[in-house]
């Protein structure tokens, strides 16, 4: 299986603290891989390295055969990598529609002059807006966001904000989707919806998904493979059942004394 996203032995430290130490994993098209581990294990740091927010000091990150470590975030996004954030990073003064339209940024072209000249629905910038608005509306329908289309997202409930963030990532039409604790803080019903959406996204668009999640039920339902981190190192990898039963994982989660 040739992976779409391949992380090879990356390492990064902040000051003296080694946040990641030789972490490797791979995600193929149409596959969901979960990244688990206790708080502070380095999961979000892996995402930040992929996104270009951090530049790993060792190792390689390869997307579709191309090394991306060291690229700036917008260049990484151009290669078809989208993400959500553990602590929601929405454009909170913009509406749901505008947040999703921003997700279309890479697929749009209008510059300053075309933008200023927008006049009614006739000039190129306006036609471009309308075209992409149609795509955004499809996502709004898909994620059931019709009711909050024009709402400032800062005013939306937490769970809805998480869905809008997913929508913005989808609007980018990514090949790789990184979801950082998408179900955290959601109620059972919202989690149920989210699970189905993620399954659809994989089935319909063949996206490769890397998922950080604490809810092992959720992980078991979605992921084909799981990678467990602790103190910046991979401690286990395999199917959800294998990883859940792995002694190192039990130890990491329960603490050494519980196993001993």
């Amino acid at each position: 299986m040739s992976a779409l996203l391949e992380i090879d032995q990356i390492g990064i430290s902040f000051g003296g603290v080694k946040a990641l130490l030789g972490v490797s994993l791979a995600v193929a098209r149409g596959e969901v891989v979960a990244l688990i581990g206790p708080n502070g294990a380095g999961k979000t740091t892996v995402f930040n390295c992929i996104s270009g927010l951090y530049h790993p000091q060792q190792g390689r990150i390869v997307v579709d055969g191309r090394e991306i470590q060291g690229l700036r975030p917008h260049r990484v996004a151009q290669l078809g990598i989208a993400r959500t954030f553990q602590n929601i990073e929405l454009f909170k003064h913009m509406s749901t529609v505008d947040n999703l339209l921003l997700g279309r940024h890479l697929h749009m072209r209008s510059g300053v002059l075309a933008g200023m000249a927008l006049l009614g629905p006739y000039l190129p910038a306006a036609r471009e807006e309308l075209r992409h608005r149609t795509r955004v509306e499809e996502i709004i329908d898909f994620l059931d966001l019709q009711a909050v289309r024009g709402e400032r997202v800062g005013n939306l409930p937490y769970g809805t904000q998480k869905v809008v963030e997913l929508g913005r990532a989808l609007a980018m039409e990514p090949r790789v989707l990184l979801l950082d604790e998408p179900a955290a803080g959601m109620n059972l019903e919202e989690k149920q919806d989210l699970r189905i959406w993620i399954q659809d996204i994989v089935a319909l668009f063949g996206v490769a998904i890397l998922l950080i999640e604490h809810d092992m039920q959720f992980v078991g339902d979605l992921a084909q493979r799981v990678v467990a981190l602790n103190y910046g190192e991979c401690i286990a990898a395999g199917t959800p059942a294998e990883v859940r039963a792995h002694p190192e994982v039990l130890k990491a989660y329960l603490g050494a004394e519980a196993v001993a």
Binding site: L53, H74, G103, V112, M116, A117
Partner: peptide
């Protein structure tokens, strides 16, 4: 001109940077 600009791609990128530069850059801005 400014009103129009703020309703299109470039203006949205400006506001996005203001609200969350991290998210904006990860969305390709």
């Amino acid at each position: 001109a400014v009103r129009n600009l703020m309703h299109t791609r470039v203006g949205r990128a400006f506001v996005a940077i203001r609200d969350s530069d991290i998210a904006a850059s990860c969305a390709g801005v």
